[in-house]
Amino acid sequence: MPLAEESPLITELGRWVLREACATIAGLGDADLGVAVNVSARQVRSGELVPDVLGALESSGLPSSRLIVEITESVLLDDSHVIEDLTVLRQLGVRVAIDDFGTGWSSLAYLVGMPVDILKMDQYFLSDVEHDPARRAMCRAVLQLGSSLDLPVIVEGVKDEAVLTLLRDMGHRYLQGYVFARPLEAAQLAAGAWDVQHADTPAVPS
């Protein structure tokens, strides 16, 4: 991926991933399933993101409300056309998430009034969180920040029961990681193969 990011081909690759992801989810026939797609900074800056997303939705028939576009924090620091494009996507019904939140370059001030719907807390914050009070404090701070901005926070990289229990006790509602399921093929997802033992915690399959 780092190599692809350095090449103009990342835009074409991103376009293909968008189309494949939307087509796959639309083809499963489950109206409750959505998909989140990581979009490279180069693709966002290309000015082609809106037509790429529209093309993927139109060709697949997937409702825009079932697509989340994930960007990195640094993209928010770019010129105004990026903000305009993200605003257009949200007006179309597509949600925008900041991936790996807390590890990028953006100031918290950039979140105010930005066209963003979801924060995804980087799994960096979970390293030794069970034994490190500072890490736990940071996790709580990110959750409180999201709450104060009325933005849901998805915690990435939850790998075991102990961390899952700790995060639940902190009040984290949206979690993602191997504790729920490993990455699945489309057929496995359609068959409901992902772990449902934690059904009381909203989860995002990998």
Rank of each mutant, 00 (worst) to 15 (best):
residue 3 L to Y: 14
residue 3 L to W: 15
residue 4 A to L: 14
residue 7 S to F: 09
residue 9 L to K: 12
residue 10 I to T: 10
residue 12 E to D: 14
residue 12 E to W: 08
residue 13 L to P: 06
residue 13 L to F: 11
residue 14 G to C: 10
residue 16 W to V: 15
residue 16 W to K: 12
residue 16 W to C: 13
residue 24 T to A: 12
residue 30 D to M: 09
residue 31 A to D: 15
residue 32 D to F: 11
residue 33 L to D: 00
residue 34 G to N: 07
residue 35 V to C: 07
residue 37 V to G: 07
residue 39 V to E: 01
residue 42 R to Q: 09
residue 45 R to G: 11
residue 52 D to M: 13
residue 54 L to T: 11
residue 55 G to K: 07
residue 56 A to K: 05
residue 59 S to Y: 06
residue 59 S to D: 13
residue 62 L to I: 13
residue 63 P to L: 00
residue 66 R to N: 05
residue 67 L to M: 08
residue 67 L to E: 04
residue 73 E to F: 06
residue 77 L to Y: 06
residue 77 L to A: 15
residue 83 I to T: 14
residue 83 I to M: 11
residue 83 I to Y: 02
residue 86 L to Y: 01
residue 86 L to A: 09
residue 90 R to D: 00
residue 91 Q to P: 00
residue 94 V to Q: 04
residue 98 I to E: 00
residue 98 I to N: 02
residue 99 D to Q: 00
residue 104 G to V: 04
residue 105 W to R: 12
residue 106 S to W: 02
residue 109 A to F: 07
residue 110 Y to P: 09
residue 110 Y to K: 14
residue 110 Y to W: 10
residue 111 L to T: 07
residue 112 V to T: 15
residue 115 P to S: 08
residue 122 D to E: 06
residue 123 Q to C: 10
residue 123 Q to H: 13
residue 124 Y to L: 07
residue 126 L to C: 03
residue 127 S to H: 11
residue 129 V to F: 01
residue 133 P to V: 14
residue 135 R to N: 05
residue 140 R to T: 14
residue 144 Q to A: 15
residue 146 G to S: 04
residue 148 S to T: 12
residue 150 D to T: 11
residue 154 I to M: 02
residue 155 V to P: 04
residue 156 E to F: 05
residue 157 G to S: 05
residue 163 V to C: 06
residue 164 L to K: 03
residue 184 L to W: 04
residue 185 E to C: 12
residue 186 A to M: 01
residue 196 V to C: 13
residue 198 H to M: 07
residue 201 T to I: 14
residue 201 T to L: 07
residue 202 P to F: 01
residue 204 V to N: 02
residue 205 P to D: 04
